[in-house]
Design a binder for these strands. Structure first.
Lengths: 135, 135
DNA sequence: TTAAAAATCTATTAAAACTATAGGGTAATC
DNA sequence: GATTACCCTATAGTTTTAATAGATTTTTAA
């Protein structure tokens, strides 16, 4: 199940990408427009900023804005920051690999084999799309 | 993240599918062999039985056994029973569809569009594989 | 025929982790 | 001084992952 954090984060990014200019947009405006708890959105936008997707400006006329071109923001990186690993088990994760404790032979494990294919198929989708595809 | 329930269930199914005959196998044997908490496995096997994957036999010489040919057990049905909906959001689920409350226009929603593609890619993997592919 | 043993079945509960949100104060900017 | 992002803490709720204890059914053996 997709977490609301990811869902809200994606919606916020899309909203910002749809702006005509790159002027700051207030948290409250995004929250209102996308039906998101403002406080929750606040923390989400913060992590998006810390991960290089957004810039921010305080004070009057402040808010958040996209720092890169939507066409350069791949879904892989967005998903990894918001949702975490794309793989459903750590033993098939590219960026967060961990071996299973209970599994003596990875290459013989049915879970491993199946989840490897699922990861590859999801990865293909995320790699082939940027934020620009959703505005 | 894949739940341990699904992980253990898949391993148990694979273990049973790898048996030469279809004689009952004890829970304890499966648990020992796959490093699974026996009591936890017990409840998992129970739901697999109730959903038509396994048969069981009580008393001495009892245990669980596959009820169908491994080649006829699609991963789609296994995943739906163990893990639940394949879609990551209810608004793109085939079997568990629900509209989003906060989303006024599904067809314009970036989350919807992206997750639809992810669902389709995962579904393709699950549909094209049966338990027989993992023994 | 009866009793014991072997196994599945059922229900309850509990710890741990995670999710989603709220509150209140701080710091920067206009 | 008003406005807005920033930061920290707490918490209610849910889900996951079991642990515990016993009930029920079947087989085997005395």
């Amino acid at each position: 199940m997709l977490s609301k954090k990811t869902k809200y984060g994606l919606k916020a990014l899309t909203y910002l990408a749809a702006q005509k200019d790159r002027e700051p947009v207030q948290i409250a405006e995004i929250a209102r427009h996308e039906n998101i708890s403002q406080k929750f959105l606040e923390s989400i936008l913060l992590t998006l900023r810390k991960n290089g997707f957004l810039g921010s400006k305080k004070g009057k006329g402040g808010g958040y804005y996209l720092i890169k071109d939507p066409g350069e923001i791949r879904m892989t990186s967005v998903m990894r920051v918001l949702e975490g690993p794309i793989a459903m088990v750590p033993c098939v994760s590219l960026n967060f690999y961990e071996p299973c404790e209970d599994c003596p032979d990875e290459s013989a494990c049915s879970v491993h084999k199946l989840m490897l294919m699922v990861r590859d198929s999801a990865l293909a989708v995320y790699r082939n799309h940027t934020l620009a595809d959703f505005v």
